[in-house]
Design a protein around this nucleic acid. Structure first.
Length: 189
DNA sequence: AACAACCTCAACCGCATCAGA
DNA sequence: GTCTGATGCGGTTGAGGTTGT
C-alpha cells in the first residue's frame, strides 16, 4: 500500500476534547456536512482522526441531544427493544429521539443488564452476550426470527405471560408501533 | 477526613460493511 | 471480481465524580 501524507497515530490528539476543538469541529460540520468525516478531520484543523470526529459529533455535539435523566418510559422502551433487537444499540437509539447509541449502551451495560438479570426476565436463550457481536448477527437474526416468526401474534404465543408484557406495544406512540410493525415484517421477509 | 466501592460517561479499538476505482 | 479507503457499529476501558463506611 502506498503511504499517504497524513498524521500518524503518534501525531493525533487523543483523550478528552477541548471546547476549542468542539468549536472547530462544529464549524467544519456546518461547512462540509456530517458525512465527509475524513474531509472534516483534515480541514477542521484538528489533530483528530475521522472516526474520533464522527464520534464526538454523534455523541456530544449533534443538535437535539438529550443528556442524562432517562425516564421510566424510555427505560421501559429500551428494555423491550433490547429484548426484540438484542445489542443493536444504534437501532434502539433510533427509536429514542435525542438519545445516542453510546448513551443507551452505557446505560444498559451497567443499569439495566443488572436490573434484568436480577429479575430474570431475559427470554430463554437470548442473553445479552449471545445477542451481542456482529459476528453473531446470523444467530441474532435467527433468534429474532424465532421469536417473531409468523408475526407478532404468534410471537406472543411463544413467550410466557411475563414476557408477553414486554412485547405489548399497545401503549406506545404511533411512530413506535409503525416501526415495530415494519421490523417484524422485515424479520419475516 | 480518608478511603473504598460504586457509578457515569467519554473515548478508543477492532471488526464488518459499503462504495468507488 | 478485487482492492482500498471510508464509515458505522458494538465492546471495552479508564478517568472522574459520588456515595457509603
Amino acid at each position: 500500500m502506498k503511504e499517504k501524507q497524513r498524521p500518524s497515530k503518534r501525531e493525533l490528539n487523543r483523550g478528552p476534547w477541548t471546547a476549542e476543538e468542539d468549536r472547530k469541529l462544529a464549524k467544519a460540520v456546518d461547512i462540509h456536512g456530517a458525512k465527509q468525516w475524513t474531509t472534516i478531520a483534515a480541514k477542521a484543523g484538528l489533530a483528530r482522526c475521522a472516526k474520533s470526529c464522527r464520534l464526538r459529533w454523534m455523541n456530544y455535539l449533534r443538535p437535539n441531544i438529550k443528556r442524562g435523566n432517562i425516564s421510566d418510559q424510555e427505560e421501559d422502551l429500551i428494555i423491550r427493544l433490547h429484548k426484540l433487537l438484542g445489542n443493536r444499540w444504534s437501532l434502539i437509539a433510533g427509536r429514542l429521539p435525542g438519545r445516542t447509541d453510546n448513551e443507551i449502551k452505557n446505560y444498559w451495560n451497567y443499569h439495566l443488564s443488572k436490573k434484568i438479570l436480577d429479575k430474570g426476565v431475559l427470554v430463554a436463550g437470548i442473553s445479552t452476550k449471545d445477542m451481542g457481536s456482529k459476528s453473531d448477527q446470523q444467530t441474532v437474526e435467527e433468534k429474532t426470527q424465532s421469536v417473531t416468526s409468523s408475526g407478532a401474534e404468534d410471537s406472543k404465543a411463544k413467550v410466557d405471560d411475563d414476557d408477553a408484557d414486554f412485547f405489548d406495544f399497545s401503549n406506545e406512540s404511533p411512530s413506535t408501533l409503525e416501526w415495530v410493525t415494519k421490523f417484524l415484517e422485515f424479520s419475516n421477509s
